[in-house]
Design a protein around this nucleic acid. Structure first.
Lengths: 222, 222
DNA sequence: TAGATTGTTAATCGATTAACAATC
DNA sequence: TAGATTGTTAATCGATTAACAATC
């Protein structure tokens, strides 16, 4: 039973707010940077300070999932990275499919950051016959009709939608039918999906809108 | 006074939760689609249903900012679009600068969705001498050193960072020094900015991590 | 030991939901 | 009028913060 929109279950069975999970990714990013910088341990107050959260919040967030710290010492960076990756599921290998090889799709295919977290784009799909059969940074471009077959063969569980808005729902339906369990949608539309499939929407225009609001409301009141 | 991290002020002076503002953008997107589909009015329950929110939440969100509905009738789509755009600040013209013209920067430059919400990318910047002097989809590429001058001349208030992680903080500092008031950061690093500058972070790897967690935790418990 | 820092509890704060009078 | 739907209040629910005993 995990139908709730905003919660997951911690190992303890306690509900985990969705906001906690998004902070987990930020902790992970900072921890990986600290390790690159040669730091061996950190503390809830240091992590909090770097991200603008309170130390109490950092401790509480992590404590949902286990006892990762050492009283008097703090958290060992490498230990905590391992723990957070295990929690997020990025300690595994995730073959990913991307649909749409326009500007955005190409940018995503070229994005180096994915690999570090276990994500590997193994197949791209397009409707453009001129692109099918080619490849981008080594990733083959298939005809969208071959999606079921490739998803099955490559054991793909995650899909990225990078097609124009009007095509997005149809692509989502195809991904779902092929057995994909999670979708990141870059098209500016709300997808209707079965509740058994997870989705994350990233709308670039909406990000700018949020920024616009922040700037405008600050200007009016600050 | 609007230093609070998660709140803004409604016209009434009441605090507006940050989550409300992000839903505002979703309402706007649905409203614009309804209008394209020829629908003249909608209701809190319809908007809620399309987005997975309760009708009460939709009404409450909108009521932070004014009386936009008509009891017994609902909301007139065009009226509400106008109201929401006014609230978000996207009824104005926002000249935007983008720094970095790699794959992602190029994709963003080619993204059509911005224009509809008042955003206009008017200048791109890069350190690569081979790119400077050229243009992408009609947007000129300047040497990063000319940032202060161009930002000033074009009255640019918003900047997009699309450079590799290690270069992002330096670019942010330059944008801030040039007088930019808001930044969307696509680099996978936490920026340190004066509180007077708003920022939105978009980390593509983090989006996939969140999806991974959703899929994994569903699989374990559902 | 003294100092630092965790994990956890209780208190506070904030956001969502349910209910309903007012309105068209 | 009857039916539909808003805006708003009060009640519920959830998340964050502060405080501190336990631990190294």
């Amino acid at each position: 039973m995990n139908d709730d929109k905003n919660k997951s279950m911690a190992p303890s069975g306690e509900a985990v707010p969705k906001a906690v999970v998004s902070r987990l990714s930020l902790y992970l990013r900072e921890l990986q940077r600290l390790i690159r910088d040669g730091q061996e341990t950190t503390s809830s107050s240091q992590l909090g300070q770097m991200l603008g959260f309170s130390d109490a919040q950092v401790r509480k967030d992590l404590a949902y999932f286990g006892h990762f710290g050492h009283p008097g010492i703090g958290y060992r960076c490498d230990e905590l990275v391992q723990a957070v990756r295990r929690i997020l599921g990025t300690d595994r290998d995730w073959p990913v499919a991307i649909v749409g090889t326009g500007n955005l799709g190409t940018a995503l295919l070229g994005y180096k950051g994915f690999g570090h977290q276990g994500f590997r784009i193994v197949a791209a799909f397009d409707v453009d016959a001129g692109k099918v059969g080619g490849s981008i940074v080594g990733v083959p471009i298939y005809d969208i009709e071959r999606l079921p077959e490739v998803v099955d063969q490559q054991r793909i569980k995650l899909g990225i939608i990078a097609v124009p808005g009007p095509a997005a729902q149809g692509v989502a339906d195809k991904l779902v039918a092929a057995g994909v369990e999670g979708i990141v949608n870059f098209a500016p539309v709300t997808l209707v999906l079965p509740t058994s499939v997870s989705q994350i929407g990233v709308d670039l225009a909406i990000e700018l809108e949020q920024l616009s609001f922040a700037v405008v409301s600050r200007g009016e009141s600050g």
